[in-house]
Design a protein around this nucleic acid. Structure first.
Lengths: 245, 245
DNA sequence: CGCGGTGTTGAAAATTGTCAATAATTGTGG
DNA sequence: CCACAATTATTGACAATTTTCAACACCGCG
């Protein structure tokens, strides 16, 4: 039983004691600086599955880090069409590109019961004197987000549906492994519709492509329980089009 | 004759005297702060048409602003396929998401003879004490970049080719107007191949779609000389899927 | 003046989307 | 806890869009 499954529901833990610390806070700080970092996160918010990080919660005066759970970022167009532009797991930043005024167009929804850490930028400014590389760390987080979006544009702009799905599965596997979970047996948090929107194809095409992978013995799949059987074959389909590092 | 066409070739102008100042520097500064901003840009670099902002020029220790000209950002995949993920005009930031190590995968090329301003992040840190909102301004620039990428993902993920091309033309028009140029008569700096890659379709499809718009009297087009005739029709095709503000 | 890169257009092929029917699963309220 | 409804997922047949392949025209530049 993986203890990590329980820990994140605790709302009052200090950053310095958090298992995700290395993912979202600057490294190489001395003890004093590390302790000061604890004051950065002013609160943690529970978001129930299906609910949005939005309105009362969400503001462009703060940044957010996923402490536990999983989110999707969705852009809504005037005509009602939605586009999923990202999925976000623990340790990842949320909504860096979204401004308050944009709230109506862009929403961030929890795919399962989740917890986010809130870091107001005024706190960042306050602490920047004490810790020189805090600002550059924030810039780093922005850069990571931009790189992530670049990789999304890559498959949206230049891959066929098999390449898109294979790339999606492999990226998912990598990001699960980076969090200490199995990269082989994965419990998908998102629907086929979400995957389809994210990949810029229709959900029927996602189903068909997954069915093809199952037939070819590349994966096993039962509803949202995924098992990757043949990584090598998936890689050759994805053409190694993987940018996550 | 528009004077702006000449001014940007001057390399030694102070930021406080630059016509693009309001686009790339924080607003609301007092005179003293404004003058200090002048020391932010340590150099300006000319890049000839077809050359890259890269290698000796490019580093993740600095950020870059287009002073004059036009650039494209291209991600290269392992198999040689390229994906244009953005075009950048004067006043816009360059390469915020790109790290040095990524140099081989991502390049930024000048579409015409251009000039960029170089702002080392160490200068930003230095000046941050004197000007409180400099850091938040830098974050603003990152946020603008992320929003831009979101709008790219929107058409890549959810639009057919007519919608993509119409959206592209209208965004181009808006960004030209924002710079004081005509939003009706536009001189395209990029090839059909670049447009195609950016829009995630083939160049033949771009040609055909443009031909269709010409037949329908939505635009005039002679090679790279574009005239938008019927904005309303283009808007209704694009479904107002325009995110630039 | 010719050559390489760029741009246009046509016809056929391939991929993906659309529509529809059905099954399985989850959520909800009595 | 069951039954019903709503959502999610799969699959097939057909339609539509986009790509592919090919031929040709055109500019611009040495």
């Amino acid at each position: 039983m993986d203890m990590r499954l329980n820990i994140p529901t605790e709302l009052n833990i200090a950053c310095s004691k958090c298992l995700q610390y290395s993912q979202c806070m600057p490294t190489g700080l001395n003890e004093y600086e590390t302790l000061r970092m604890d004051s950065l996160v002013t609160q943690r918010v529970r978001i129930k599955k299906g609910n949005d990080l939005y309105r009362n919660n969400f503001s462009d005066k703060s940044m957010y880090i996923v402490r536990a759970g999983c989110f999707k970022t969705v852009i809504s167009q005037h005509d009602g069409r939605d586009q999923v532009v990202g999925f976000h797991m623990s340790g990842e930043s949320l909504g860096l590109g979204v401004e308050q005024s944009n709230g109506a167009n862009c929403k961030i929804s929890a795919l399962e019961d989740s917890v986010v850490c809130v870091i107001p930028f005024v706190k960042v400014e306050e602490l920047a004197n004490a810790t020189n590389d805090l600002h550059s760390h924030i810039r780093h987080l922005f850069r990571v987000e931009i790189k992530r979006e670049n990789s999304v544009m890559l498959f949206l702009g230049s891959m066929n549906s098999e390449e898109r799905v294979a790339t999606f599965l492999l990226n998912l596997s990598l990001s699960h492994e980076a969090r200490g979970f199995s990269g082989t047996n994965i419990n998908l948090k998102m629907s086929r519709y979400d995957i389809a929107s994210y990949l810029g194809i229709k959900h029927e095409t996602v189903s068909r492509t997954l069915a093809k992978f199952i037939k070819g013995n590349l994966i096993n799949l039962n509803l949202r329980l995924l098992k990757i059987v043949n990584f090598k074959a998936l890689h050759s389909i994805a053409n190694d089009g993987i940018l996550v590092d």
